[in-house]
Computed example of a mutant assay.
Amino acid sequence: MTEEVTRVPLPDRNKGEMFAIVDKILGGSRMIVMCADGKSRMARIPGKIKRRMWIKEGDLVIIRPWEFQDEKADVIYRYTRTQASHLSKSNKLPELLDVFGK
Rank of each mutant, 00 (worst) to 15 (best):
D23S: 09
D23M: 06
D23N: 12
I25Y: 06
I25R: 09
I25C: 07
L26H: 08
L26R: 13
L26Y: 08
L26K: 14
G27H: 09
G28R: 10
G28V: 10
S29P: 01
R30Y: 09
R30P: 00
R30C: 06
R30I: 04
R30N: 10
M31F: 06
M31H: 01
I32Y: 01
I32S: 05
I32Q: 05
I32R: 02
V33T: 04
V33K: 01
V33H: 00
M34K: 09
M34F: 12
M34L: 13
M34S: 11
C35P: 02
C35T: 07
C35A: 14
C35F: 03
C35M: 05
A36H: 03
A36S: 15
A36C: 11
A36Y: 04
D37V: 07
D37E: 11
D37G: 07
G38K: 06
G38P: 03
K39L: 08
K39P: 00
S40F: 04
S40T: 11
S40G: 08
S40P: 01
S40Y: 07
R41H: 06
R41G: 00
M42Q: 14
M42S: 11
A43M: 07
A43H: 02
R44K: 15
R44N: 14
R44G: 09
I45L: 13
I45Q: 02
P46D: 07
G47F: 08
G47V: 07
K48R: 15
K48M: 14
K48T: 14
I49D: 06
I49V: 15
I49Q: 05
I49R: 10
I49M: 10
K50C: 11
K50I: 12
R51K: 15
R51A: 11
R51H: 15
R52F: 15
M53E: 09
M53D: 04
W54F: 13
W54P: 04
I55W: 03
K56E: 14
E57V: 12
G58E: 12
D59K: 03
D59P: 01
L60T: 03
V61W: 01
V61E: 02
V61L: 05
V61K: 00
I62D: 00
I63Q: 01
I63V: 14
R64Y: 07
P65T: 02
P65L: 05
P65F: 03
P65V: 02
P65I: 03
W66V: 03
E67I: 12
F68D: 12
F68T: 14
